[in-house]
Design a protein around this nucleic acid. Sequence first.
DNA 1: CGGGATCCGCCTAGATACTG
DNA 2: CAGTATCTAGGCGGATCCCG
Lengths: 114, 114
Amino acid sequence: MYQFKGKEYPCCASLTMGIIGGKWKTVILFHLRDKALRYSELRKKMPTVTERTLSLQLKTLEDDGIIKRKVYTPKPPLKVEYSLTDLGKTLKPVVQSIADWGVFVVEEQGGPTV
Amino acid sequence: MYQFKGKEYPCCASLTMGIIGGKWKTVILFHLRDKALRYSELRKKMPTVTERTLSLQLKTLEDDGIIKRKVYTPKPPLKVEYSLTDLGKTLKPVVQSIADWGVFVVEEQGGPTV
DNA sequence: CGGGATCCGCCTAGATACTG
DNA sequence: CAGTATCTAGGCGGATCCCG
């Protein structure tokens, strides 16, 4: 049994998936892997996600201590940037290998435009 | 846009997650990472999964060409073994890094029994 | 032994409208 | 600009029973 943030997981692999699993979280982490991004910048990089879902996933990642949210303006219009925490940075190799495999598979079978 | 098995993904990372995402698939792949296992052996290693879900996830992974199913007996009681395909073996580094991070996190914060 | 069939609950995520 | 509120649906996964 593995535990993290009060949740229990039957396997070390499922713990990680509990944190970065779901349809969008790895995509968010992938885009934040080497620079902070504003909310609107993330939306541009993820055109098919809804505002609500993006917002929810960001909050979940923040609660899990993977990303941090920094507000720059005291009053609207707000400027908010998201970036990886130190813990989040330890996920970079994981996210990278996930992303690499996606590229690998597309290049292997079928190929993209090649 | 990335494609695999007729499905479209907005990001290379989401493609991979489309294949190994979900609550159980990485756990299955983790247990199959270096040896073939029977259905009942997988169940023992994953006590909290239901038969239906395990069966469903195995079939999905098989359809995606990640694992293969080999039947050894012509009549019941059946002996069936699951193992990684060549494509599935290319996922081993990904699954390994996912599993490693789970172990890392547990050791970092809180620690297990230590 | 290794599942398939059925039924169902819950959570994830989508659509849309609205606000500090 | 960066979200929140509400409502909804679809699918994942659980429980149970049954069959080759």
